[in-house]
Every structure is written in structure tokens, then in C-alpha cells.
Design a binder for these strands. Sequence first.
DNA 1: CTGAAAGCGCTAACAC
DNA 2: GTGTTAGCGCTTTCAG
Lengths: 348, 348
Amino acid sequence: MPRRSSRLTIKQVASAAGVSTQTVSRVINARPDVSLDTRKRVQSVIEEFGYQPSALARSLIRQRSYTLGVVTAGLKYIGPSRVLNGIAGAAEGMGYSLLLKELPQFDSNDVYPIFQTLLSRHVDGVIWGVPEVGPNRDFIDRLNLDSEVPVVFLTMAPREHLKAVSIDNYEGGRLAVAHLLEQGYRRIGHIAGPLDWWEARQRMAAWQDTLREAGLQAGAENTVEGNWSSASGAEAIEQLFRQYPAMDAVFVANDQMALSVMQAACQKGINIPQELGVVGFDNISESAYFWPPLTTIEQDQHALGKIAVEEVIRMIGFQWSGAVAPAPTPVTLSPTLIVRQSSVRRSP
Amino acid sequence: MPRRSSRLTIKQVASAAGVSTQTVSRVINARPDVSLDTRKRVQSVIEEFGYQPSALARSLIRQRSYTLGVVTAGLKYIGPSRVLNGIAGAAEGMGYSLLLKELPQFDSNDVYPIFQTLLSRHVDGVIWGVPEVGPNRDFIDRLNLDSEVPVVFLTMAPREHLKAVSIDNYEGGRLAVAHLLEQGYRRIGHIAGPLDWWEARQRMAAWQDTLREAGLQAGAENTVEGNWSSASGAEAIEQLFRQYPAMDAVFVANDQMALSVMQAACQKGINIPQELGVVGFDNISESAYFWPPLTTIEQDQHALGKIAVEEVIRMIGFQWSGAVAPAPTPVTLSPTLIVRQSSVRRSP
DNA sequence: CTGAAAGCGCTAACAC
DNA sequence: GTGTTAGCGCTTTCAG
């Protein structure tokens, strides 16, 4: 026999205040058409009972839940968490609750049930925060985007008819490599992220383009693919030393792999930055305390999450007001170069 | 004029299948009392339409939402994120959705509205994942825990009548210091976390107790308080060197601060582990790639989250079955010592 | 086996 | 100003 929830209903408040439920409804919705006297009486009952209207019942009748679905993956890594942090702060500030789903893998393509669950809970909009890996965005084509709720996609290649909020990874890669060139490095290797990741491909393409425009070498022999982990970085740098012995600098696709590069250099007695310049990507909080401190590219993932929330709420507003929503334009955030000692040669 | 949601209702399915809504209800709830014929007809309509029952309406009538409220703070740090990762995986596996709230600060004590929001959305249970900082758990005394939903608290000092799932920080501290003693270090300093954090106090108490039991020094002059950040670690180690010049090892309350210790040692030409043994806490993924690799205490935060979910669902089960729930017993997870080079002197 | 009626907690539309 | 009626989408008696 289920213990009946002790939740107070509008009915109980109404009868305690000696009014109809409708009047209580008016009070809690701050409608003007209630006499001051009644309003006060009702309010004091509400206070006394600690009554809180059921958001569920409201959602049902209003056809609007003030809830956003957030789909993410890899929360055990710091990147997705920072994004979620930005999302949570912004949603709270704008009066929305968050329904969170984490995919067990990045490359899961069976996401239909996830959407179904979210929709069955009447979310007003969805933020798709799973990074673009392999074919894991193919489901988009199967999605009936017109009839469903607004969706904002995070950090992805722009696509027709889709709202995307991204950090410009290509620009970040350019900043990194251009900086190394300015510092006088000329034989710049690359440790890439896993190339089924869109972001890894962008960073690598930037490395290649920037070097080639400068008339320098950027071929397969100058790069090795890692998988973001420090462990893979350790293997990658070993291989890169073998493949490209003349290398005088390396652009590493994230800070964790860059850390391994520094460890390897330390063990081999290679001096950073004199003999090897190093630039990472992400600006994790530790990287300022590596030895030497790591030059890196900062991406503001908190802002990414915040903007995603703002955008999806804007879209919900359009949908709800019945106005014709403008064609979705992509939002792109620029990363920043953070110069530290690992890439700045002391003057001779 | 709000665009009507394109959601399909049970009514539409019923009329398309030529049956009543209850019959559809029976089919989607897998009730036995439907003829095979009818069942098939209904199912094919459901398939065809892609119908998904409204979880909202169900929650309302069943008085059960299969939703858990999760309250967290500091998602931009890796610890809370790992816990959330564990929570999300377990909840998904057990058929529960997650309503996420992140507090803007750790020490916010005005949490009543948070609970109100969660309850207004009919969560079946709550996982309180905010670390215990200063007086930020005082609200518990004001909470009417009998009449509300089950709550599980994470990583806190055990309290009467409350379900807590914690990692034994005290034991972790003991493991760290005992290991240093075994390695022959005798003048062991401590860089503490911020002492308004319960976890920081536990780690420090363990350091103190273990040393004093061994007849060694562990006073105010042998410790400095940091704030978990690498930056604070850098300051702390400087001060500790001044305060305690004879120090031959240091137990640092987290890995990020330990990183700064290593950087400082490197700059000063102090050899780790020969001249200074270092043990951290957390086992962040980078710490195996510090130079030298960092000995640390691993806490399985993923498991913490997972167990919290299991416990809260168990409590929901009791409440729902009407059985007398057993008095809540605390669950405590043991951390593990991970030995790496930073604390192991090579034999002379 | 199937359907009609009632109601979860709330609000929109209308009466008075 | 305030109450009544209807209904959001679903499930639960209880008839038939």
C-alpha cells in the first residue's frame, strides 16, 4: 500500500482559506483580479502550510515545462563538465530545470530512445552536448526537427537548418601554430587527438594549413595520432621523436597529452623551450603549474554552455510566440592563446 | 498563439486502433488481460505513429515520477563531475531520470528553494552531492525528513537518522602518512585543504594522528592551509619550506596542490623523492604523468555516485512498499594507496 | 476481455 | 472579484 505523498494540493489550500481553487490559482500566478483581502488570506495559508504548486500538473496543462533536456557524454573528463557547469548556471538563472542524460559512450548512434525519453517528459528544448565523433551525428538526418522541440547542438561542423554553438577549434589550432612560428620554431610536429573526433580534425587541419602557407613541412611523417589521454601522449611523443628527429616544436592537441611530452622531454634531458617548444590545447587548470608552465589554447566552455541555454530558450520563445523563427545561424566562440614558458625561448 | 505541441496522445492511438484508451493503456503497460488480436492491432498503431506515452501524465496519476533530484556544486572541478558520472550511469541503468541542480557556491546555506523546486517536480528521491563546507549542512535540522522524499547525502560526517554515503577521507590520510613512514621519512609536513571543508579536516586529522602515534611532530608549524588550487599549493609550499626547513616529506591534501609542490621542488633543485617525498590525494588522471609520477590516494567517486543511486532507490522502494524502512546505516568506501615514484627512495 | 466514469493537481474560459 | 465547468494525458476502479 503506497504511503500517500504528503504533498499539499491546491484544493487543501483553497478549503483552508475558504475560497475556490481558482482563486488560489490566481494568487499563486500573481493575477491582478483578486481582492487584496482575499489575496492576503490565501497567501498566509500558503505560507503557513508551506504549499508549493505542482510543477508537473502545471506543465501538463500549460503544455510547457520550463525544463531543458541536456544530453552529454564523458562527464568524467573535465571538458564536458565545464560545459555542463555553464549550462546549469544559466538555466538556473533563467528559471529552467535540467533533465540530464549521459550517454555511456561518445560514439553511440542509438540515440532515438534518449530523445523519446526527453520528449515524454515534455522538455521545452534540448541541448545536445555530445561531441561529434565518427558517425554519431547521423541520427540528425532521421530526426524530424520540424515537429519536435528546439535543439541546440554543441561544437560541431555547421549544418543546414541546425542551431550549432561551437568553439572554433580551427582558429585555435592556427593561433597555436602561428605563435610557434613567431617564436622562430620551424620544424613543428603535431600530436593529434583521435581523428574520428571533429575537434581533433579541425586542430590538425589548422596545423597543416598554417605550416604549408608558411612553406613548411606538415605531412604524415610529422604527426602522430593520440587519443587525448596522457598515456597515449607518452607513446605518441616517442614515436614522433623517431619519425621526425629534426623537430624543434610540437603542437599537442590537448594539455593532458602535452603533459606527457614534457615528462618525456624531462627524462631525455631535452630542454623545453630551448630545444623543443610545446603548445597544448584546453588550458586545464593544472597546465599553469606544469614544468615549465604550458602555453596553450583556452576555450571558454563555461560560456559555451551558457550561450547554448540562451539560444535554446530564445528558440523556445519563437516557437511559443508563434512567430516565424529565423533560420538558425551558427554561433562560434573564439579561443584564446595563453602564452607561458613552454614556447618562449629565452633570448640567447 | 502557442503552436500546439505535436505530441501524440493515447486518445489518438485509441481511435486509430478502434479501441478505448484503457485498452491502449493496458497494452503499453504490458497487462495480460488484452486479447492477442487487439494487442497486436494497438501495437502496430503505436509503432506506426511512433507514439510515446507522456511520462508527465503518468507521474501525476501514479504519484511516482521515476526521477531523482541531484544537487551538486563545483562541476567545473573534476571530483563532483566524476560523482555525477557515476550517478548518471547508475540512474540510467535503473530506469530513472535525473533532475540536476547545481549550487552556485559550495557554502550556500539557502537551499530550501532548491528542495522546493525538486519536490514540486515530484522527484522520488534526492541525492545531495554538495560537499560539506562550513555550516552548509545546517539546513538538515530544519528539514522535515519524515514527510518528504528519501535523501542520500554524499561524503559527510555521519549523522543520526540520515543516510550518508562517503569515502573515508580519514583512512585515506592514514594510508598516505603510513606509507611515507614506511619509506623512512620522519619529518612529514602537510598542506591541508581549506579547513572549512569536512574532507580537508579529515585528511589533516589523519596526518596528525598517524604522526603522533609514531611519536613524531605534527603541529601547527608543520602544516599550511591551501584552498585546493594549484596556485594556493605554490604559496603553501613556499611557506612550509620556511616554517619547517627540516621537512623530508609532505602529504598534500590533493593532487593539484601536489603538482605545485613538484614544480617548486624542480625550481629549487630539490630532488623528489630523495630529498622530499610527496604524496597527493585524488588520483587525478594527470598525476601518473607528473614528474616524477605522483604517489596518491585514489577515491572511487564513480562508485560513490553509483552507490548513492542504489541506496536512494532502495529507500524509495521501502517507502513505496509501505514497509518500515530500517534505520539508515552509513555506507563508507575505502580509498586506495597508489604508489608511484614521488615517495619511493631508490635504494642507496 | 473491454469500455465508461472518475480523478491525479492544476488552469483557461466562461458565468455570475 | 469569485466560482463553476471542462480538460491537460494518463490510469484506476468497476461494470458489462
